[in-house]
């Protein structure tokens, strides 16, 4: 697959992810403010608010990881690679991408297993919401699996990104591009 089609496939996906993240941040703000207003103004309280906010935060944190990574918001030390010649710098970048990839894949595997083993109980907060909405015949609430699975999902998305980086670095070794060229191109791609 050429780099062109790869990025055109990515664009709608990235837009959807962005929309989802913006919605989560907005939802967090609304829930917290409503909770304050209800409690202080009306002496009432959303019993599920605290728990729902925590779970939204978990999804927010892991879903945004791949985007944070490509925007350079996952801090790393670069002093070694900027001092190196073209090929060694690319080899080093490949090695670091590979190391990160290994960790991601481990976390996808074990994260999934953990979610499966420990995610059997229903989410109490969702149960409260469903009971508020439907009363006694409320449907069964989803399990905490749907919270815990955020970790393997986020790490899986990042793994895809890292595989892309790895391919770019390895290809650049033969094509004559420098690490700087690759970084520049990813940046313009993001700016689009």
């Amino acid at each position: 697959m050429s780099a062109m089609t790869f990025s055109s496939l990515q664009r709608p996906f990235r837009r959807a992810l962005r929309g989802l993240l913006v919605t989560i941040v907005g939802a967090l703000l609304v829930i917290m403010i409503v909770q304050i207003v209800l409690r202080y103004g009306f002496s009432a309280s959303l019993l599920w608010a605290e728990e729902v906010c925590r779970y939204l935060l978990i999804w927010l944190a892991f879903l945004a990881v791949p985007l944070a990574f490509e925007r350079g918001e996952v801090a790393s030390l670069t002093f070694l690679s900027v001092r190196m010649a073209r090929v060694p710098a690319l080899v080093l970048a490949s090695v670091t991408a590979l190391l990160s990839l290994i960790l991601c894949l481990l976390l996808v595997y074990y994260g999934w297993r953990f979610a499966d083993m420990a995610g059997r109980a229903t989410i109490p907060a969702i149960r409260f919401i469903l009971e508020d909405l439907f009363g006694a015949n409320a449907p069964e609430a989803p399990g905490t699996f749907w919270v815990y699975v955020a970790l393997p999902v986020g790490m899986g998305l990042l793994a895809l990104r890292l595989i892309g980086d790895l391919v770019l670095c390895l290809r650049a070794i033969s094509s004559g591009d420098t690490l700087g060229d690759i970084l520049m191109r990813t940046e313009t791609e993001l700016a689009e």
């Binding site: 941040v25 967090l28 925590r54 978990i58 976390l107 074990y110 815990y148």
Partner: peptide
């Protein structure tokens, strides 16, 4: 103990007070 890592990672950020970070 590897199965403990996902648990510790999730538990590490599963905290109401950490909501102060995004806000």
């Amino acid at each position: 103990l590897m199965i403990g890592f996902p648990q510790k990672m999730i538990a590490g950020i599963d905290s109401f007070v950490l909501l102060t970070i995004p806000f």
